[in-house]
Design a protein around this nucleic acid. Sequence first.
DNA 1: TAAAACATGCAACAATATTGCAAATATAAA
DNA 2: TTTATATTTGCAATATTGTTGCATGTTTTA
Lengths: 139, 139
Amino acid sequence: MLHSSDLLKKNGLSITESRKQILELFLLSDGALSHSDIEKKTSAAFDRVTVYRTLQTFVEKGIIHQIPTTDNSILYGLCKDSCEAGHHHDEHVHFLCNSCNKTICLDDVTVPHVKLPNGFKPLQSAMVVKGFCDDCKVS
Amino acid sequence: MLHSSDLLKKNGLSITESRKQILELFLLSDGALSHSDIEKKTSAAFDRVTVYRTLQTFVEKGIIHQIPTTDNSILYGLCKDSCEAGHHHDEHVHFLCNSCNKTICLDDVTVPHVKLPNGFKPLQSAMVVKGFCDDCKVS
DNA sequence: TAAAACATGCAACAATATTGCAAATATAAA
DNA sequence: TTTATATTTGCAATATTGTTGCATGTTTTA
């Protein structure tokens, strides 16, 4: 079992209470988390600003990645081992369940390549699929 | 040339100055627009609230659609003719240019289907590709 | 043209995000 | 282990973004 302190150390970050707890949330969560999710789950133990800065740091270090949304929120998901600082490899599909409202990283489903019009040079792709997840499906 | 008033009439909306001007912005723009883009481009001629409600109305009527972003903004793009109220057909790829920062609807590039793990039922998909656009490409 | 329906702007408020700085904590060095 | 340095945190202040109710103004319908 990967422990939060190890992951912090591995990324050259000093080990603090807020970083440990917030990272632990991601390790234990089965879905992506937003800023407000984290505030709730930590019972606002940390200042809003600390949470903002922690998330930003984690993104920069390649510990978590941002997931596109159509509302004005930012979702964060845990990165796989292959991610590094400044060099994310999060080209997997994200699934948003219409029922339980969770957003899940489908780490094994890679975003397919698409043929773009002439002149367009793709660098990264992101994909979000909405529907019903494994747990909520009508069987 | 499609005129804003026609489009409003076609969708059963009363024709007002703010709706005309905001819709005109979309018709003339070559990229997607955010709330703040619209405020700037109209020189804040309309109240913030009016802009919010206008965008909401346009989305409901299928005139514009929301585009996923990884920041805390909402982007809106003009819908194709095939969109109707409550029934969008905007499963095209969106392209975000790292250089000029525009987001462009690639209406002719449809989002490919992906094979999901067992139990996941997809309903809609969205895709955003980042890179360099036609105008900004290093040739 | 008048009445009804609808849209707008204002005010008040709520939620979300950013910055500088002093205090507190973690790490590195002695 | 203790001290010095570097880093992180929390607070305060402020900015930005989003929402609601209601009176006023505008558009549409008859």
